[in-house]
Write a protein that binds this DNA or RNA. Structure first.
Lengths: 259, 259
DNA sequence: CGAGGATACTTTACGTCATAAGGAGATGTC
DNA sequence: GACATCTCCTTATGACGTAAAGTATCCTCG
């Protein structure tokens, strides 16, 4: 299944995402806040990391903090906004952009690997809001990082936009595939390899004409080497190489890929 | 929000996805089935197309067919499996693979545009099961189609796998972005352009140091031309071009991209 | 110092969801 | 005509997000 995110008022998330770190709190009555938006976001991430997306309920997050579900609504307008905050917080794990870089190919590769690893550390992010640009600071910083890395390639603006979109979607999509394979294997308590084996066997049984209907797919599959985990990692590496070659084809600056 | 899909037993979907079209129904007692898996899948797609993913409940699908929610469980094990079937049915709209093609660049472009358009016809698909390979017949046929289109490029197996992954993820990701921009605008009853305008204004207000923190992003944004809709379409076109250049860099066969 | 009001958090409640359980009526085989 | 089987319904369960209203705590102002 999938989870909807952010169908609510996206504008409400913005203020929280970009909110001032801590208002001095002067002239306010009432009990001191025992919680904070940050603490709630952290608790949400902890729950999602440990139990997965389906287990992420307001009740669960509240319990993690020793409160009821409703206590969270003092700090956060609703679950959709909490998800937005969690998303951006995760991306905040990414390292800052380098000041400058000569070898854009190495720089982009590093960027992609970091994002990929980050997604795999928090696979539930991949089940959220696939596309909606929440425009949180960390997300924008990651884009700025990528743009910085690509700068030596000196791409034309249109081409730059296309390259950024292609790279971002590729990393996210590949990570989602890997994460899902892992998740499915883990959920059934079976190794990655066994899971694919049984699945393939079942498929062969249900569609005996498989090799005739899908000859190229069959050929590609039989050309595959090791474990599914290796294959995922491989698809990431070689896919990224294809993308970088494409970027290089449009590069006008100095760089590993250009002439 | 987001929707979980397919966390259930994925193996159960397989039989339905590949199931024989219609068993002859001999020697069976009881009332004749008034429904069918196909009819339920169609109803589900109708509901999702018309009302969006959040409105897709078993009750709603049942109502569409003049039944209760529970009636569906006679035909389909659960909602997750229904989503898998809906997903594959949508991909079945794609045209069949051409027997052969000389100009792989044109062929892949056509393939990508068809997939992109298909996703945009059924945007809810992009909110489902982002990655889990359900391995339905239509999905595999689409991959076989892509492999057929790529064949004249004569890529090495590893590179071929990478290219397929990159292309697929790119189309899906870009479609998701476009669909989401449309959806957000539609939901608020505001034009695409207005939505982005207000959002940008709000962002500028919340983060006045935006241009200093994200100079490259700011530059790229100001270099953008027309409407967001155009920008989405542009990102698709130019991103695809980047990808195809990358594929061409590894092509050993004849083709538009090769030497 | 004491009243009033704002604030943090709780309890309770509502409507919705997927789906388990059990039953009613129809339809086929013997 | 008895019985098994199958479709579809009603009802029920437990979870969900969150609205509403209550309670306890704390600051500020008189």
């Amino acid at each position: 299944m999938t989870v909807y995110a952010g169908q609510g008022d996206a504008h409400r998330s913005l203020a929280l995402l970009w909110g001032r770190p801590a208002e001095p709190r002067t002239g306010r009555s009432g009990p001191k806040p025992g919680l904070s938006v940050d603490a709630i976001v952290s608790a949400g991430i902890a729950v999602a990391d440990a139990e997965g997306m389906p287990a992420l309920s307001m009740r669960a997050v509240g319990e993690q903090l020793g409160r009821t579900a409703m206590a969270l609504y003092t700090y956060v307008p609703g679950k959709a906004e909490l998800l937005d905050l969690m998303h951006d917080r995760v991306l905040a794990e990414l390292p800052a952009a380098p000041a400058a870089f000569d070898d854009w190919r190495a720089a982009v590769t590093a960027w992609a690997e970091e994002l990929y690893a980050c997604y795999l550390r928090h696979p539930w992010v991949l089940q959220v809001s696939q596309a909606r640009p929440v425009l949180g600071p960390a997300e924008l910083a990651a884009m700025e990082h990528l743009l910085t890395a690509l700068q030596p390639a000196a791409l034309a603006p249109g081409r730059l936009r296309g390259a950024v979109a292609a790279l971002w979607q590729f990393v996210r999509g590949t990570a989602a595939t890997t994460a899902d394979a892992r998740g499915a294997a883990a959920a059934t308590g079976v190794t990655d390899e066994d899971w694919w084996t049984t699945r393939s066997a079942r498929l062969a049984e249900l569609a005996p004409d498989f090799p005739r209907r899908f000859p190229l797919l069959t050929a590609l599959q039989s050309a595959a080497g090791g474990s599914p985990e290796d294959n995922s990692a491989d698809a990431f590496r070689t896919g990224l190489a294809v993308l970088l070659d494409g970027v290089a084809a449009g590069a006008q600056g100095l760089g590993t890929g250009g002439p």
